[in-house]
């Protein structure tokens, strides 16, 4: 049941072929260059306080941490508050989205009921609707809700999280559903025969077997929430309530006064939680759990 045991029956028979390894690394390096290159401009802009974003190909000609210190210590921007808000909202949304999505995926994968397939399809279709007026509609809705329940109205984190949870069921549910289908039914059937209820099967058996996809969905949901500014900027009004994305976008929304170095520095700092979360979740995504547990 532990990781080494899983690895044990990976094919070790074939020997490594140096040419093949080299080719693989070459491919990975080319892809890395493609992925990283535009980000070097961002990093360069972050380190060059008076610089532009794309004015010059001479990257890193002036390097300093001015933008970072300006951002973090500035009285003008409650940067650390924004950061905290983003973390709270991002992590909460990610955790709850995974939870709500997994519940639904379990039902769709394990139970047979009328409207199952149309229901699945409907979840995905709902999210295809062009979001042209979403911002106006959400503003109106949260204004109304806020009149009755101020705690989840405009300008509250809980309100924003609720809006994000509206998208918890959707394509991610389908993704989990597909993955749930790969977990053999015999496992939960055996447990049921032993007297475990459906809830127990879900929480203690299924959830642990589908960890990779839960981790992926959590990461996707966190990134989407962390970087969203369209909805967050309408819902969160006071500076102290706002998220990092909202705060940062405002710095560059007027092209004439766009502070690209501060924005880029902020974007670099904002990438840290995403990277950290990925590093933390990576072992769950590719931990080889499924194979081991199914055995």
């Amino acid at each position: 049941m532990s990781a080494p045991a899983t690895r044990a029956h990976l094919p070790r028979s074939r020997r490594r072929r140096p040419m093949r390894t080299l080719a693989k690394h070459a491919a990975a390096i080319v892809a890395s260059a493609f992925a990283l290159f535009p980000l070097l401009y961002v990093l360069s802009a972050a380190l060059n306080p008076t610089g532009t974003l794309t004015g010059s190909n001479e990257l890193f000609k002036s390097v300093g941490l001015d933008s970072f210190t300006r951002l973090v210590t500035s009285d003008q921007y409650p940067f650390l508050t924004w950061f905290k808000n983003s973390l709270i909202i991002g992590l909460t949304t990610a955790a709850l989205s995974v939870f709500l999505g997994a519940l639904a995926a379990y039902a769709f994968s394990r139970m047979r009921f009328v409207g199952r397939r149309p229901g699945l399809l409907g979840l995905v279709l709902v999210q295809m609707f062009p979001q042209l007026l979403a911002v106006v509609a959400i503003f109106i809705l949260l204004t109304e809700i806020g009149e009755i329940f101020p705690a989840i109205g405009l300008n509250t984190h809980a309100g924003l999280i609720s809006v994000y949870l509206g998208a918890a069921l959707g394509v991610n549910t389908y993704l989990m559903y597909g993955f749930f289908n790969t977990v053999p039914k015999e496992l939960d059937e055996a447990a049921m025969i032993d007297g475990a209820g459906h809830a127990r099967v879900f929480f203690t058996i299924i959830l642990r077997l589908v960890t990779p996809i839960l981790a992926v969905v959590a990461l996707l949901s966190f990134i989407a929430t962390f970087n969203d500014f369209v909805i967050a900027s309408v819902v969160l009004i006071d500076a102290d309530q706002q998220t990092l994305a909202v705060g940062l976008y405002r710095m560059v929304s007027n092209p004439n006064y766009a502070d690209w170095s501060a924005f880029a520095a902020g974007a670099v700092l904002a990438a840290i939680p995403v990277v950290a979360l990925f590093l933390f979740l990576q072992r769950y995504i590719v931990g080889g759990l499924t194979a081991g547990a199914v055995k």
């Binding site: 709270i88 992590l91 909460t92 955790a95 709850l96 705690a151 984190h157 809980a158 309530q241």
Partner: peptide
Amino acid sequence: AMLVTAGMLLSACSGGSTE
């Protein structure tokens, strides 16, 4: 996950009290 959920509830409550 539970901590996060609790955090959300707390943030909802504090949001309410500062409203």
